[in-house]
């Protein structure tokens, strides 16, 4: 498990468009960079990020080596009901991590 930072409002009004901000600790090794010994470091990146709201995919992104280390991503969502947001990052070397946040919609 690596560190993630998430900013999701705890509450929202029905129909409100919220902004979701995510940050995850990951080197995003490009696969183009020589290491200290001169050989090229193998690629190790997060390839896919998804956000599900009550098990329905509401945002997804394919990431390439041009995304900076410790990927930062913000996006929006219109919320109509209370529920659970689940964030999943998947990548090279079997990397997979999911974090969840509840949101109460009045």
């Amino acid at each position: 498990m690596v560190r993630t930072l998430l900013r999701v409002p705890a509450t929202a009004r029905s129909g409100e468009v919220i902004e979701i901000r995510t940050l995850i600790a990951h080197p995003m090794e490009t696969g183009f960079r020589p290491g200290a010994d001169g050989t090229v470091q193998p690629r190790d990146i997060i390839r896919r990020f998804t956000c599900r709201f009550n098990n329905r995919e509401v945002f997804a992104a394919e990431l390439h080596p041009a995304v900076a280390a410790n990927p930062y991503l913000t996006f929006t969502l219109r919320v109509e009901e209370s529920g659970i947001l689940a964030f999943t990052w998947e990548g090279d070397n079997g990397f997979s991590q999911t974090e969840t946040r509840p949101i109460a919609v009045a």
């Binding site: 995304v67 930062y72 996006f75 969502l77």
Partner: peptide
């Protein structure tokens, strides 16, 4: 390629931000 994001009407806005390498 840098990043490709999928969204929809439920997104409420078509807006994203990230940090990239150049």
């Amino acid at each position: 390629n840098v990043i490709t994001a999928r969204l929809g009407p439920w997104s409420g806005a078509a807006r994203l931000s990230t940090r990239i390498r150049l």
